[in-house]
Every structure is written in structure tokens, then in C-alpha cells.
Amino acid sequence: MGLYEKWFEATREKDKRKRYWTYVEKEDGRDEIRDDLAETIRSHYDRLERIAEDVKRLGYTFAAKILSEAMPQTPRGRSGDLGEILATELVEEEIGLRVPVRRLRYKDGRNMAMRGDDFIGAGYGGPDEKLWLLKGEAKSNKVLGKGTVTSARKVLNRDNGRCTPDSLLFVANRLLDSNDPDDNALGRSLRDEVGLKSLRADRIDHMLFTVSGNGPHASLKADLDGTGTNRDHYVVNIHVEDHQDFIAAMYKEAEDLGDD
């Protein structure tokens, strides 16, 4: 059972190529996933096996200090990063595309936001099993409002709705550095797409992903209603009522590697 299935009650609406998904925490859902989510957060900043190696060499306290240096320390930085983390996990768990690079491992500074698309899902689909992409924008706010939704949609529509070339190249080059042949093949497909721009709009899905303390604002549904039908659209809201306290608690737990 995946993170989302354990944690939330989901409501999913679909109208042709438009999907509106809302998630509300189950009564005991947070307790069920707390340890798993802490580990997931760590894995977006460093490889778990590398963290384990630090523990083996230096012990838990100093390994935790190394991990903490990769994580944002400001409420805003943590909120933004957690939005991207939860979006990535949703794409892989609920849609089946890969988000093949954990881009938070490559930040210039732990409190700085990264440029480019927030997350890119990639894989192969359709009857021809050719490249399929998902361009995603993640927003995490204590209070979600229309302005945030409008700005996120503008970003998704940028570059004629395509993934930005710099974002695609970033993912492609990380995959081409891998020792996995499947990663290399996907990386080559992404790199070729930067040059060829051959994918039609109906093979580049869009996701507007939100985490908020006030739940799904009316502007989310209105935004989805206003999108076209030339691609799959996902508009998602994760409702976490104690938004800021929850984020602070989860980062504290993620930074704590234990002592045994």
C-alpha cells in the first residue's frame, strides 16, 4: 500500500481529459505514514544508502548534521520543497510515470528555490509506446488563493505548454550519467526531444499540484474548467489543516536519524 493510500481519503472527478483530485487526511493516516514520509523526505535530498554509509562511518549525530546541511531551514523553503516531494510521490504512485531525477539533491543552496519546471514525469505510453511527459507545478501554502493558482497556470502554459528545455536537459543529463541502461535510454529520448520538439501537446500532460491548510480553493476547479482538451490535465489539492506545524514537525523528524 502506497503513501497516499495509507494517508488520505481521495475524491477523484474526471471529465474527458480533465482530472480533479482532492485528498483529505484519514483519521489515523498521518500516524500510519509518519516514518515512511520522513524517510521519503530524506531520499529526496540524498541517497538513503549514502546516508547509511555516513551513519556507519561517523555515527548518527554527525550523519544527521550532514543531512541537515542539504535541507532548507526556513519555513518557506521547507514548504516549497515538501510540495515538490509530495507531487513527485503522487505522480509515481497514482499516474505511473517516473519522476526520474530527485532534483532537490542538486540545489545551489539549501534555502534557495530551483529554477525550471518543479517536476517532470516521463515514461513511454500510447499504442506506439513512445515518449510521454508530464509537466508539473507545485504550490504549498497555508492559505491557497486565486493568485497562486493563476500564477501556477501561467508557468504551465509557458513555452507553449512544453517542458522547458533547461529542465529537460537537466533531467536528461543526469540519466545519461547513470549506469542503468534504461536510464540512459530515457535520457537520450529526453535529450532528443529538446532538439526535435517532436512531441504533440496530447503527449505532454499538465499537473497543478497544491498543498494547503484551507483545502481546495474554488479557483482550482475554475482553473481546470478553463483549460483546453488537447492534453491530460490534473489539478490536485492535498488538504493538511495544520499546514505549517505539520511541515515543521516532518522536517524535524526527517533530520533526526535516531541514536541506535
Rank of each mutant, 00 (worst) to 15 (best):
L86R: 05
I238P: 01
D15K: 14
Y20D: 05
M114K: 07
D232R: 12
D259N: 05
A63Y: 00
K26F: 08
D245T: 13
I204H: 12
H243L: 12
D205L: 05
P165M: 03
A201I: 10
E92L: 04
Y251T: 08
G121C: 01
G29H: 00
P75W: 09
Y20S: 00
A248F: 11
Y45W: 10
E129F: 13
G59N: 03
I41L: 03
A70T: 11
K221G: 11
R34Y: 10
D182V: 14
D28N: 11
T40N: 14
D205A: 15
V55L: 10
K130R: 08
L131E: 09
T11H: 15
R158W: 09
G96T: 06
R102C: 01
D46N: 02
S151N: 07
R200M: 13
G213E: 00
I204R: 00
G258P: 04
S140M: 07
H206I: 06
A152C: 02
R98M: 15
K146M: 07
E49H: 11
Y20H: 02
R191F: 13
D232W: 08
N214T: 04
N160H: 04
D177I: 01
L134A: 04
N173K: 12
A70Y: 14
R105Y: 03
P75K: 03
R78D: 02
F62Q: 15
M112I: 00
S79F: 05
A249H: 03
L257G: 03
E253G: 14
N111T: 05
K65A: 13
H239L: 13
S140R: 09
D242K: 12
K65H: 13
S212N: 02
R188W: 06
G145C: 14
T74K: 10
F62T: 10
A222C: 08
E253C: 06
D166T: 10
S189C: 10
T88R: 15
F209I: 06
E93C: 02
D117I: 10
V143I: 15
M112S: 01
L82N: 02
W132S: 11
L82Q: 10
K197W: 03
I238Q: 01
D202V: 09
K221I: 06
K221P: 11
N160S: 11
